[in-house]
Simulated scan of single mutants.
Amino acid sequence: MTTSLDYSTMFRLDGRRAVVLGAGSGIGREAAQALAAQGAEVVCADLDPDAAAATADRTGPGATALALDVLDRAALAGAARDLGDVDVLVLTAGTHVRKRLLDYSAEEFDRVVGLNLRGAFDVIRAFGGPMAARGRGSIIGFSSMRAVALEPGQGVYSASKAGVTQLLRAAATEFGPSGVRVNAIAPGIVETPLTAQIMAEPDWYRAYADKSVLNRWGRAEELAGAVVYLASDASSFVTGAVLAVDGGWTAAD
């Protein structure tokens, strides 16, 4: 039996356009560079235009920058239309307010759920519809290990990420017959601007490192391989999946 998949190029993305939302820093920035390294034409999108431009400069001559607010539905629809054929969509944008439920304000709840969950909903619709119409594409969203393993002060964020997981799985079932794959990546504790508050506290930093099976925090670049895998033909039969990249945090009690 022979295979139609060329194992020597199965991770290559030559000729494909990838849009990374949240490319200005952290995991998004590393994902953009990794996709470009495999041959993709990368659009580095971020709310901060200077950060988007800086990532595009780091990513290489084929990369472009785009200022885009994922909370602006009209802007999302316009970007999806103006960019034309998008083969890979990566959504890393997110926010967090670490407070117990009784301490949360309504504004903070709306901010976290609005960006993490409603933003994902709008992004999936804006880019997933055209992908389904063309009959191809890969959507990669970021959930979190907090969708399944939480602690006091993480409730709203965890709920939003659990919702993101289910949204992505729903999209996988609805877009799959049209040839579009949709998957989630669930990071563990990773050194990014979103975790700067914890990183600044030595006791917390060490405690979180010890909770991982590998006894350390993850680095943003260690998520890039998962993004490339789910974007490429190497994962051609993978959809509706949640890929944990958490240093074994959710594997051990």
Rank of each mutant, 00 (worst) to 15 (best):
E221A: 15
V42L: 05
G129S: 01
D87P: 04
G155P: 05
L117I: 03
N183E: 11
A251S: 06
A79W: 14
A149H: 13
Q197F: 15
F121R: 08
L68R: 06
V19E: 00
V228N: 08
D87Y: 15
A18G: 08
R118S: 00
R12T: 07
A32R: 15
R206Y: 07
V123E: 00
R146I: 10
G240F: 10
L243C: 06
M10W: 13
G24W: 15
T239A: 13
V213T: 05
A162T: 06
G26S: 03
R73T: 02
Q33P: 03
G247C: 06
G28D: 00
G94Y: 13
S232V: 00
A200K: 13
T165R: 14
R98C: 07
V182S: 04
T59R: 05
I185A: 03
G247S: 03
A54I: 11
G176W: 12
E151W: 14
G225V: 09
T3P: 02
W204G: 01
R118G: 02
Y205Q: 07
L5P: 08
V19H: 03
Y208K: 14
G62Q: 13
D110G: 03
A36Y: 12
T195H: 09
N116V: 03
G176L: 11
D48A: 07
A18S: 08
E191Q: 14
R181P: 02
I124R: 05
R16M: 09
A200S: 03
D253F: 13
S212G: 08
G153L: 05
Y157L: 06
D233S: 06
N183I: 11
A196Q: 12
V112Y: 04
A51E: 10
R17S: 02
V164S: 04
A184S: 10
I140S: 05
G39F: 08
D87H: 15
D87A: 02
S236K: 15
S144T: 08
K99R: 14
D122C: 13
V156C: 09
G176R: 12
S25W: 12
L76M: 01
A40Y: 13
T165F: 14
I185C: 05
G24D: 08
L35A: 07
G22H: 04
G153I: 01
V242M: 01
F175T: 02
V42M: 05
G153M: 04
Y104S: 09
L167F: 13
A67M: 09
R181N: 10
I185D: 00
T192Y: 07
I124Q: 02
S235Y: 11
R17V: 01
V43W: 12
M145K: 13
L71G: 04
R219Q: 10
A34W: 12
A241G: 06
G141R: 11
S4V: 09
S144P: 01
V156D: 01
R73N: 05
D103P: 03
D203C: 10
A186C: 09
R181L: 04
S138W: 15
V190S: 01
S25D: 04
A251Q: 09
A133C: 01
A52I: 10
A37N: 06
